[in-house]
């Protein structure tokens, strides 16, 4: 791997990422009053996050079974309103234990 190559590609990534963030934050400074538009932005994070998680979460670990177990654990715990960190770490632990069991069989 060419060090120079890696350096400028990381810089390129950083520039694009920053431009995506700064563009609307600086250009759209007026308050939006339209109810539908406001509602759209209220709901957007839920839509984006849900699409980011499902279904790729099922393939985020070494085996489908362990990912399923981890996902179920995360969904149940968050349904009962456990916090972000608790849910994330419990899902991780569930995957770890499931894979230990799978490998032992």
């Amino acid at each position: 791997m060419n060090v120079f190559d890696v350096l400028w590609k990381i810089a390129l990534m950083a520039i694009i990422t920053y431009l995506c963030r700064v563009l609307t934050l600086v250009l759209v400074r007026k308050k939006i009053t339209n109810v539908r538009v406001l509602s759209f932005f209220e709901y957007l994070p839920y839509g984006v996050l849900s699409a980011m998680v499902f279904p790729v979460v099922f393939y985020s670990t070494a085996s489908l079974i362990s990912a399923l177990v981890g996902t179920v654990v995360a969904v149940i715990l968050s349904f009962f309103r456990r916090g972000l960190l608790t849910v994330a770490l419990s899902a991780t632990a569930a995957v770890f234990i499931t894979e230990l069991i799978i490998n032992a069989i």
């Binding site: 709901y43 990912a67 995360a74 972000l84 899902a91």
Partner: peptide, 28 residues
Amino acid sequence: SLLSAFGIALYGMFIAIVIPPCRTSKAI
């Protein structure tokens, strides 16, 4: 095995943001 388990951490966090409000808001 530990590395594989960490693969799900980020998704777990997102699930914890998305699921709770679904209980009380039909819209969400």
